[in-house]
């Protein structure tokens, strides 16, 4: 399998803080890559490199290369950032639906990207809600506020929202950390379903989750990539002592 995303010696500074210290890593296409590590290790910052979300934080500096399909996304024109983000969907730690109806939440990405055809939008909303395994639960109340859904439903709605504009990459920043075990299970099933069509990068605190859903795992510690490889290998036979300590719960 080829690399969908590749970073070469990527450094990230928040002001004086050196958050990422030269990460070189390739992320495989149509697979799930989990990024694990203790809090503050830089895994979320690394994830946010791929859709240039770090740009929004003032005093951020980035060096090195971040290649998406071979193109350095930090050398594109500012006007192309929007189309980059269209290609890279993102799901956040806490469910964050917009203060709109369920339908409009999913349709939002289509509308802001200039799609006006009503029947097209309706078809896409239904398709993505089904993809996100939410359609049966919400099909009768599409016009209700998204805030009336439960936390787990809201998070699946956010996934549907990200899928609606048909990205090729899906970034998930601890998507289940605010959810109960049943909702978490549904999200994990969903990730399993989606990995055939999308390149998924998931940040997680939950070791078992990383083990269950991912094909590849990268372990981050203090802004460095300590170890990267097939998930089974990392979890059963890690090369580095730090990785083993973390995975077995000796620290973290």
């Amino acid at each position: 399998m080829s690399n969908k995303i590749e970073t070469i010696d990527a450094h990230l500074y928040y002001g004086d803080f050196h958050a990422l210290k030269g990460i070189t890593l390739g992320i495989k296409e149509n697979a799930v890559t989990a990024l694990i590590g203790p809090s503050g290790c830089g895994k979320t910052s690394y994830l946010r490199l791929f859709n240039r979300m770090n740009d929004l934080i003032p005093y951020t500096q980035i060096s090195g290369q971040v290649l998406l399909d071979g193109q350095n996304i930090y050398q594109i024109k500012p006007a192309e950032i929007d189309s980059l983000r269209r290609n890279v969907g993102m799901v956040f730690q806490n469910p964050n639906p917009f203060p709109k109806s369920i339908f409009e939440n999913v349709a939002y990405g289509l509308r802001v990207n200039g799609i006006k055809d009503k029947s097209l939008i309706e078809a896409q909303v239904e398709k993505t809600l089904q993809q996100a395994a939410l359609w049966d639960e919400v099909k009768d109340k599409l016009n209700q506020s998204a805030f009336e859904l439960s936390g787990g439903q809201q998070q699946r709605l956010c996934i549907a929202r990200a899928l609606a504009i048909e990205p090729t990459i899906l970034l998930m920043d601890e998507p289940a950390s605010a959810l109960d075990p049943i909702s978490t299970g549904k999200i994990e099933d969903l990730i399993f379903e989606l990995k055939n069509q999308f390149t998924i990068v998931i940040v997680t605190h939950n070791m078992q989750q990383a083990g269950r859903v991912s094909d590849y795992t990268g372990f981050f510690y203090l802004g460095q990539l300590i170890e990267y490889g097939k998930t089974r290998k990392i979890f059963t036979n890690p090369t580095k002592q730090e990785t083993e300590n973390y995975i077995t719960g000796r620290f973290g």
Partner: peptide, 26 residues
Amino acid sequence: PRSMKEASLALGASQWQTIRKVIVPY
């Protein structure tokens, strides 16, 4: 919430679209 703005931007919305469609309604 910052995450709501980011969600909008992550969907390819411009800053102006985010203000008009997410921040002001919120």
